[in-house]
Design a protein around this nucleic acid. Structure first.
Lengths: 141, 141
DNA sequence: TATTGTTATACTCTATAACTATA
DNA sequence: TATAGTTATAGAGTATAACAATA
């Protein structure tokens, strides 16, 4: 194994390649639930009993706020989430999972486990290392 | 550190979360080049002097073949790639980088390096570990 | 007949800009 | 004035289905 300085761009390229290559198997596609990748991601992000303001959602998704309106519209039409005006600041609307949304979220997370085959092929040590590194990356920003 | 069996779905969740969280910084967005994420990915995938059939591109991107037509149309309109009918099988068209496309690809890869800051924050050992694990994942499918 | 790529269609995601309601 | 969310608009990505050219 090389001990020379690692190349961060190499990791980026691999991450992008892996992510795109796995999209078809990626539970985030949520084909079984007829949900788009972004819709799945939103369902991951909003935990039951922990509603999120629409603006916060835009920040987290890294997209313009105007997109959230349609995104939430579609999720609301399907009965997965609900808009609630914030009592403190009536400009703000928070998004809350409905009981159905909460149930679908649980199924989705369960589905992830059964579809994570390529990751399961890693050794236990590698899986632990990957999780540790990713946790560091996700928390650190 | 826990020694219990690692949870592959945890790694998936983290990967998805990380990927979405980083999209705004992700060079794959290629804002500097006015390229969409998928267009950037195609430019990564097609190496200079190694043209790729449209069908192969659809497979690699994991999308329906009908999308490739428009995708390649837009790249062709911008002078980044060229369609060439295959001499052996005239149903097949291969996509080749133009000199401009090749140049943009190089700039894009260079841009990756300078934007990979969140990954640079990892220790050298973690970076090496991440690259090793990802290489295993990408090759293993 | 089967395969490669295209076209037509419809929907989702995305950004920008102008707008409304609230602070 | 500034902020949160909406609307209008335009363009890109995506899937399905029907099609043409080629094998």
């Amino acid at each position: 194994m090389s001990r020379s300085a690692p190349d961060p761009s190499r990791a980026w390229q691999l991450l992008v390649k892996f992510f795109f290559a796995q999209r078809e198997h990626l539970p985030a596609r949520g084909e079984a639930f007829e949900l788009s990748p972004v819709q799945c991601h939103v369902l991951h992000l909003i935990e039951p009993e922990r509603p999120m303001a629409m603006g916060r959602l835009a920040e987290t998704l890294g997209c313009d706020a105007s997109n959230i309106t349609g995104l939430v519209d579609r999720l609301e039409d399907r009965g997965l989430v609900q808009r609630q005006p914030s009592p403190e600041d009536r400009r703000i609307k928070v998004i809350r999972l409905t009981p159905t949304g909460s149930r679908v979220r649980t199924q989705l997370l369960r589905h992830v486990t059964s579809s994570a085959r390529p990751l399961s092929r890693l050794s236990a040590a590698d899986q632990r290392a990957l999780i540790r590194i990713l946790e560091r990356l996700v928390d650190e920003q």
